[in-house]
Write a protein that binds this DNA or RNA. Sequence first.
DNA 1: GTAGGGTCTGACAGCGCTGTAAGGGTCAAG
DNA 2: CTTGACCCTTACAGCGCTGTCAGACCCTAC
Lengths: 115, 115
Amino acid sequence: MKIGELSRRTGVSVRMLRYYEAEGLLAPLRTESGYRDYGPEEEQTVRRIKMLGAAGMTLETIQRLLPCVRNNDPAFTPCNELRRILAQQVGLIDERIETLSQSRTILAGYLASVN
Amino acid sequence: MKIGELSRRTGVSVRMLRYYEAEGLLAPLRTESGYRDYGPEEEQTVRRIKMLGAAGMTLETIQRLLPCVRNNDPAFTPCNELRRILAQQVGLIDERIETLSQSRTILAGYLASVN
DNA sequence: GTAGGGTCTGACAGCGCTGTAAGGGTCAAG
DNA sequence: CTTGACCCTTACAGCGCTGTCAGACCCTAC
């Protein structure tokens, strides 16, 4: 299928589909006239990217994780780096939450002092 | 005092001090030769900016809040927008934390499924 | 053939800072 | 007078996407 249809089917913008390719996460065939030609396999991949992206991952991280993804459900093939990357991501998120929580505390303090 | 000294005294980089000015948060005098000349008042302002920045605020938000800040401690003059802005900021942070928490949940689920 | 819709590439813009570098004055000490 | 530390402005780069626009080709249908 062409890029427009894939975009419609997955809800990912044409712009981003091309971006995925530029970043090396996707490598669709090309028609003779140069149009991208996506197969069902590629559609799967896009859904997986979307799924991992929803978990807040960077495309760069997703790229490293992609070979380990088996389904669109959370099902993975145990690659060696897999656990490490996932754990690292959780740690990263925890850090961010911690930072935000501190900011929140500070702001709440300000807010209280205004009363 | 000149920018280098202010930078040393506040721990804010020279680059950022100039940036504050470009963004309209600071307006130091100028010597005849064009050097920025900061007074103690300006140093106070920089400390306030730093304080609010530590709470995760954007310079743009800080700018709107700055006229209401009385001390370097969390002490404000009750401007009309003050409470609204602070509450809004807390809400913003809560949203971000919520998003991150969801991501965390998703990732933790993945991690669990790998075991 | 021509219009209209889809696709292509390349590139600029924006978010909110922050560093760095280039090219060039200023100022105090020796 | 020269050196060296400091200051000035301007502007590019990077983070991680994402939209949009320009200029141009492809394809289908009327």
